[in-house]
Structure formats: C-alpha cells, structure tokens
Design a protein around this nucleic acid. Structure first.
Length: 567
RNA sequence: GCGCCCGUAGCUCAGUGGAUAGAGCGUUGGCUUGCGGAGCCAAAAGUCGUAGGUUCAAAUCCUACCGGGCGUACCA
C-alpha cells in the first residue's frame, strides 16, 4: 500500500537522522501514518516527532523539542518520485504531499487495475469463511435478515479484495424443533388444501406464504400424501419443504444480489454421525458429562463462561448447541479454514462466550473464530415500533422492502451504519425518500462518465482504455487541483479496503463511495473533458474519467450494487 | 442485579488519541444558453448524555452516574 511506502520512507529518515547523530539513539516505535482531515496538511502526516519526544524524555530524562526532532527527520526525507513536498507543522507534525508527477502516472495504473483496483495482499494465502444469514429455513427473510445479508456479503467481498480466499456459507437449520414445526405446519396447510380438517401446531407457522408452499407441494405430488401414513408423508415433506423454502430464500437473497457458495445442512451432521462422534470425543476429554438425566458441555471450565450447557436433553433430543459444536469442528478441523467469521444479530450475543469454550475444548486457537454482532433493525410505522413475528406471518419481508424501496437503496441504507448501531427503519419514509438515496448519486457519477466516454468515441477519439503513444505526455497536463484531487481520492481505495477488513465492517465504503462521487463531480464542474481545441488535454481527462469510472464501479461492486451505464 | 452495545447538527448517521468535529436528508440563498441539473456553490445549524480522571493532545482511553437497546432457556 501507498501508506506503507510512506511509512518506510519515514522510518528510513529516522534511522538516517540517528546515524547522523541528529537524533538520540533511543528505541522508537514504527511511525503511525495518518490521513490528515484537512487538505492543507498534505496527503499523509505523522506524529513520529511527538512520539519520539516522549521516548527521548523517558530514556534520557531530558526534555526534547518536538519541532527540532521533526526538523532532523524532515532533513532526511528525500523529495523525489513519490514525495512532492515535506512540511513541518504545528507542535511537530510532519506533513507529506504526494508529487504531481506521481499522481499523473497513477492514472494508467488505475485503469489497468480494473476490477482489482484497490486490492491488497493482506490476506494472501489465508482461507476464510464468512457464515451469514443462516436464518431458520421456515419462510421468507424478514427485514432484519437483510441487514445480515448485506453486511456479510460486503464483508466477504472486501476480504476477497484484501487477498483472502473467501467462502460464503449459509447454515441451514434443517434439524431440530423449528424445522419440525415448519414441516408440520406445511402438512396441515396441505391437508387444508384438500378440504381436510387440520390445525397448525402450537408454535407453528401461520403465514400466508405457507399456503403458497403447500400449493407447490400439491402441484408436485397431487393427493399422494393423503394416501400414505402421516409419518411417511411428513418424512417426504421434510425434503420437499426444505427444497421449496431454500429456493424461496435463494430467490429473495438474489433480489439484493447475495449468493452463497455453500448451503450447509445441519441435518447432514447427524446423518453422517459427526455430532455423535464429536460428543463422544469431548466426553473422553472430560468436556462433556452426564447428570440430571441430560448430557452437558462443561463450558464453565473455560474463561467468560459461568454455566454449563445442555447438549442432549433429558428426552434424548440433542440441542442446537450439540450440532453447533460438530459444525465448528467441521469448519476448522475438516475443512481447515484459517478463520471463520460468523455474522450474528446482537440478540445472539449470549452465545459468544460458549463459542469460545467450544474452540478451547476442540483445541483450536480462539482467535480463529470471530463473531461479528450487528444491532437489530426496528420497524417503525407512524412513529411506533412494529413487532414482527414470523410465526404469525405478520412481518415485513426482505422481498417487499427490496421491491418497494429498491435493492441498491436498501443495501446502501443498511450498509452506511456501523454494525453496532441500531437501525430504525421507517418503511413509509424509505419509500418517500427512495429517489434521494445517496447510492443514486454514486451511480449517477458512473453513468455520467459512461456518457462522456461515449460522446468522445462518437467524435472519433480513441477509447481511453486503449493505450496511445502520447499518453504519458498528455497525463503530464493534469495539473488542475480538481484533477489531482480526483487521483488522490481514487488512490485511497486500498486503505479503505484495508480499514474495512481491520474493523470487519465495510460501512466505511459507503462514505468513501459518496466522497469519491463528490470528488468526481467537482472535477466535472471545473474541468471540461471533451474539448476539440485541446486534444492532448482532452485525452488526459478522458483517461482520468475512465480511472474515476473504474473506481466507482469497483466500490459499487464491493458493496454489491450495480454500476449502471445510464439511468 | 449482572454482562455486552449505543448516546455527536432539526432527522438519520460517520468520525483510526492529533491540528478548525463531518456527510446524507431537511432548511435558507444563489447558479439557464458547454461533455447527463438525479448536478454545483454558499449559509444557518453542535454544552460530542453528565461529572471526574489519564495524556503534550480526548468525541475517541479509564471510572462513576443518567438515558435507551439487547442478553442473562434442557428455544434457535
């Protein structure tokens, strides 16, 4: 990364100053390189002199002057190539400005990077899994699930851009209570379709969509399930119901552009005996014991856990937690992911400590499992919170929101917030403001550039993507502040990607995308691109416009949004 | 009660110990005859919940308190 190069330059300058005897030879941490808030403070700044002052004071007991120290370091920073200017400012900050020539030459590099623009090698050689959504397969996703989908998907994209090999996984809870209730509810609906008396079980699923599902089954099997015993009918319906609900979920997630590499079945863990195997392994290691007629995982042996957890109930039925242990064994031991990121709503926070206990019991480094918690989405109507219930069928689905507000607008809306911030979602307001969504500003910038490039092509100019002999000379004409600022802004993308990975949250991308679009607009207002009287400058600005389009398309792609050529 | 998270402009939210705390929406005023006005420029708008502490430097770290959300199942 560019920032790393700057850091190396500063480090080298510190060493050189020490060798020259201009700095006392005390240990100094690697300099922190920051992006100043204000443009006058340059492209990068470092507080190394202030930090060094403290280090010198501690080592020698003598008071040092931070500005003097800064001056000594500045004297050893070469001004050539990358660095255009170095300034000493304020109490002892060192501000660095990128050279004009460097910025100009980056334009072609940006274009050539294309859809790998901003990629970094932070995760090279690392295989990560992002498991997200993983909603119960009992019906359409509600709106809160959309936040999970948007967050997990963008996170996976950003990790990929940072060099990790990433798999997106949806854990299908097709074993256990909720799925049983779903199948029984489905069976009841099926019977009702055939005019038979049937009631939805206590705690079952009443939503209207269940009738649609039942009709699909009816269309497939006719009245076959009336002719075979209930037990067998339910058995078959498990598979059919599963296929139908997964198809529905897949379709719904597809509306906001989310695709999974793998849909992992909880039931498969039982079918192949992995749950039983892992439970018996842990019994041997003393992590699972039996009392009060149940089998328990001794979580309290491990830090941050106060209680033990039931894995097999008194009635002999395993809990969700039992398969969760086997599932994570599968992820780490069998499939060998270096790291797994689970995206959970904050109401599952109580599980976090016991997941740490699982890792410890399985002999795995706890940091290999990361849980990203995001806050809940509250639905507001007429200023009041609306409680949603999947069982009663009274809930706002992701599909409804995506259709009414627009997929990209929904993604943007949910992605701008940091995960820990709660979201109050007012559907009426969202619909009313849907054309004011900031995502359209970003997309508009992209479409506008496409239009400019098309106009240039229409006037017989060579395409910007195709290198021309005089390009290097033409790019040297980019000296307007708005032109250089645009290049600067594009070059920030890699740091934004790095930051998103560092924080395991891609929400900064939305702010960056807006910033980038604004920077392009500013260039567009101040610098006419296509000008027949100035062919070389036109060429340079076409290249810069293409670079901006590349960056806009890239960041929109990372966020899972379209980059339209017209709108 | 205990644990985790949040409190920043009218609203919704960003903000990596650093220099004058930002954006979108809303409000007010201006920009027609040049590549897309879904745009641009400008203005008003802040006790960063409160009080202490650490630091050369705190919205950011620590402590207490106030307000809100979530959790504290042989549910998932």
């Amino acid at each position: 990364m560019l920032r790393d190069q700057i850091q190396e330059i500063i480090s080298a300058a510190v060493d050189a100053a020490k060798s020259a005897g201009e700095l006392p030879d005390v240990p100094i941490a690697p300099p922190a390189i920051e992006r100043p808030k204000q443009a006058e403070h340059g492209d990068f700044s470092t507080n190394i002199a202030l930090v060094t002052t403290a280090a010198v004071k501690q080592a020698t007991g003598e008071k040092a002057n931070p500005r003097q120290i800064a001056q000594a370091i500045v004297g050893h920073i070469p001004v050539d190539g990358l660095v255009g200017a170095v300034e000493l400012a304020g109490p002892g900050f060192i501000n660095i400005r990128l050279s004009q020539q460097f910025l100009q030459t980056q334009v072609r590099a940006i274009i050539d990077a294309g859809d790998t623009l901003g990629s970094i090698d932070r995760g090279a050689g690392q295989r990560w899994q992002v498991e997200f959504v993983s909603a119960n397969p009992t019906g359409p996703l509600h709106y809160g699930g959309a936040r999970n989908a948007v967050l997990g998907d963008a996170l996976a994209s950003v990790l990929t851009a940072a060099g990790y090999e990433v798999e997106r996984e949806f854990y299908v809870n097709d074993a256990g209570n909720q799925f049983d209730l779903f199948v029984q509810s489905l069976y009841a609906r099926y019977l009702q379709l055939h005019g038979q008396e049937a009631t939805i079980p206590e705690g079952g699923y009443n939503g209207a969509y269940m009738l649609d599902y039942a009709r699909q089954i009816q269309a497939e099997v006719g009245d076959r399930y009336l002719t075979i015993p209930r037990f067998e009918a339910l058995q078959e319906m498990r598979a059919k119901g599963r296929a139908i609900v997964l198809a529905d979920l897949q379709d719904e997630l597809g509306l906001i552009g989310v695709k999974f590499d793998r849909w992992f079945s909880e039931k498969s863990l039982y079918d192949e005996g992995l749950v039983e195997q892992v439970l018996s392994d842990l019994t041997e290691t003393g992590d699972i014991g039996e009392w009060d007629g149940a089998r328990w995982f001794l979580a309290s042996k491990y830090p941050k856990n106060e209680k033990d957890e039931v894995v097999v109930r008194t009635n002999g039925m395993p809990t969700y937690f039992a398969s969760d242990i086997a599932y994570h064994y599968d992820k780490f031991v069998r499939r060998g992911f270096d790291r797994v990121v689970n995206v959970w709503a904050v109401d599952h926070q109580g599980h976090v400590p016991r997941m740490g206990a699982i890792m410890a019991a399985l002999g795995l480094e706890p940091e290999r499992l990361v849980i990203v918690l995001y806050n809940l989405v509250k639905l507001i109507r007429d200023g009041q919170e609306v409680k949603m219930s999947k069982r009663s069928g009274d809930f706002l689905t992701l599909r409804e929101v995506a259709e009414e507000v627009g997929a990209d607008a929904v993604r943007f809306l949910l992605l701008t917030r940091s995960p820990e911030s709660g979201v109050d979602f007012d559907m009426d307001l969202a619909v009313a403001q849907k054309n004011d969504n900031p995502v359209y500003y970003v997309q508009y910038g992209h479409a506008r550039i496409c239009s400019i490039l098309e106009k240039a092509a229409g006037e017989g100019m060579p395409t910007a993507a195709q290198p021309q002999p005089g390009d290097a000379d033409a790019l040297a004409l980019l000296v307007h502040p708005a032109e250089l600022d645009l290049v600067r802004k594009i070059l920030e993308l890699e740091e934004q990607i790095d930051f998103a990975v560092e924080k395991l949250s891609p929400h900064n991308l939305t702010h960056y995308a807006l910033d980038l679009a604004r920077t392009f607009s500013s260039f567009y207002e101040q610098c006419r691109v296509v000008d027949g009287d100035q062919p070389a400058l036109t060429r340079a600005r076409l290249l810069l416009s293409l670079a901006a389009r590349t960056a806009l398309a890239r960041v929109l792609g990372l966020m899972g949004m379209a980059a339209p050529e017209s709108m």
